[in-house]
Design a protein around this nucleic acid. Structure first.
Lengths: 207, 207, 207, 207
DNA sequence: AATGAATGAGCGTTCATTCAT
DNA sequence: GATGAATGAACGCTCATTCAT
């Protein structure tokens, strides 16, 4: 595919290349400094282009962030459905979801940092995107929980509205801790411990 | 130091008053606009003082944020120990902790917003404070878990390093959702549902 | 008056002084380069203040122009009524108007240049002001013509709507020529020749 | 030169076509936004060529304006002589001049707007052109006046240096008013009322 | 202590011009 | 000839900080 593009149109390829180079550079700078503290000059420098070039690909600074959400992040989240589909029971679906979540964010640390920061700021710019993605995620979790209840492996007396946000929150919190940790460790290794906490809780059932 | 001044003179007392007025004004503005988008002028305006006056009480803009963490937030967190002490078993201690946590953040919404945003940004400025407070919190949780294990009400096979962060993350996530919710609801009412999820998980023990 | 202000309030005086210094500087730069080609830096430099200082007295660059019209130019035009009042017949009133017009514009050459340029550009910014001032002027002329007709010194068969604009145009044209002339001459000396052309025209009445 | 190219080759002919397309586009954009507010991109867009193409026909942005004066406007003004020639007495010559002037500017409104704006700005770029055209025009008027004096239809005691500029100014002023008028009316219909004012003035000769 | 006018570095953005294709 | 992506200087404007009063 990439190769075909090169053959067909050098221009289109270059355009795409530069667009992505700027986007990656921007995410990199945003991750380091935060969106508002990042300057166009820094992004241009990181991307190896002139400041003005940015404006050939993005309407303005805000637009870079919006594009980041619209294309990059949204794509990652959309992939979660796929992971869930691959399992045939609720518990494994939940496990796959969490695993894929941790995996994707571990794979792209900078995206993880930017995403983490933005979801905790009131930025109208991306609020709609964030709410949309959050809804997509919690809808998936809701479906899994309901299925789990049908399968008999999950409690019937759950307040699903809380549970779905609880699970997203716990996973995001795990990512957040990983990002801030000074030790380097495999984020995906948290999958099973997390699932275990979700399912069994911390209480001693024999008590 | 500030306290001493209050004792010594009326002038110092006024000073203390103005200091707090500025701090409250700052938190208010930070909550509305975010730290970097807030201006000294806005804070001064909200506090009813001149721009220059701010610099009599704070070294610079950053310092306002540091003071916010050093005094205001730290104080809130310190109160958590007290709540925990009032219960005499692990489960109630955990319940009291979570309840107090939600209560304090509900009581001071602006602080909650600022705290939420800052803990998810890489600001060297407050990193130490955040780590300190997080440690204080998770230490409390660790103690509770260990006690619960001794009491036999909590599982022995827990990865405490994860659990303590898991609980903090889940509570903070509940706060975060409450802050972003369009509906108004009583945040403390989330206490028992949360504790229930912590202790029993979502799994059906009969399965 | 000036002195009193100094005694009462140095601050107010300084403020007014700086405001006017900037306005004068701006008009000076506008006259030399034209509004759009003038930069804030140039104006600030000419006024002997920092760039940022401009924004303590004017909302933005556009506002400088608007203020110029609202206060400076409007004031000059308002003075025209006064000159007209001092004569007791139509011809002298017209003479006084034209004389005062030429006199004021000669007195403030820079204002004249800026006014001349702006009235021939489509700038929404000052369009209302320009139309307003033009109307004020042509209303005065209309009154004079009508009075002249009553006095019997002016023709009855005049298309006043044209005449009033004709007179303003001819005077402004005289100013414009004076501004562009390489020779220096007394603009007010054009008064009587102009009035003569207005009244008698170029035709030979004996023909 | 350009004309020669047209004769020599089809390619050159295309070139000439594109050259004029760009010039027309430029005038159109200048009329709408003013010279300094117009961008090369806008002109290129209006002309249906690439930005870079402009530089194959014009040295730079300023050059477009210079060419506008050198070819387009100068051509219009040159035509005035022709109109004057068609009358055989001073009064009709003046009438024909004014009529043609109004007619040409009414015919090409965009040119009129650009010409009007530029003649009232201090642009070294076109100053020479403007002075040249103004001289050409006032020379024609001077000739007419002198002839009128010989014919005995015009006063002998005229300050011709003023009269010639007076007439040009009044006509340009009529055009300027027409351009700014919200009502649409036939500009050439102003010819006779203007001539009447020129010849007879506003005064009552019987007074 | 308190003020707020003044500063000027630094930002996001535009656009005339160039040049590889 | 024709293109339009790329450039980077230059602009208007903001705002943390200082300091004379």
């Amino acid at each position: 595919m990439k190769f075909t593009e090169v053959v067909i149109s050098t221009k289109a390829n270059n355009t795409g290349e530069k667009y992505h180079r700027i986007l990656e550079a921007a995410v990199s700078v945003f991750a380091k400094k935060g969106f508002h503290q990042s300057t166009i000059s820094q992004i241009a420098g990181e991307a190896g282009v002139a400041d003005g070039t940015i404006y050939l690909y993005f309407k303005n600074k805000d637009d870079i962030l919006v594009q980041f959400f619209t294309y990059k992040t949204k794509q990652v989240f959309a992939g979660f459905r796929e992971a869930v589909k691959k399992a045939d029971n609720a518990r494994d679906k939940l496990r796959n979801l969490v695993h894929r979540h941790l995996e994707e964010f571990q794979k792209d640390r900078k995206m993880a940092i930017v995403y983490d920061a933005l979801t905790h700021q009131n930025m109208e710019l991306v609020e709609v995107n964030i709410r949309g993605m959050s809804k997509m995620y919690t809808d998936i979790v809701s479906d899994i929980i309901e299925r789990g209840q049908e399968e008999g492996v999950m409690r019937r007396d759950l307040y699903i509205g809380l549970v779905k946000r609880f699970i997203l929150g716990a996973v995001e919190s795990a990512i957040s801790n990983w990002l801030r940790s000074k030790r380097e460790y495999d984020l995906t290794s948290m999958t099973d411990p997390l699932i275990d906490l979700f399912i069994r809780g911390i209480g001693n059932p024999d008590a």
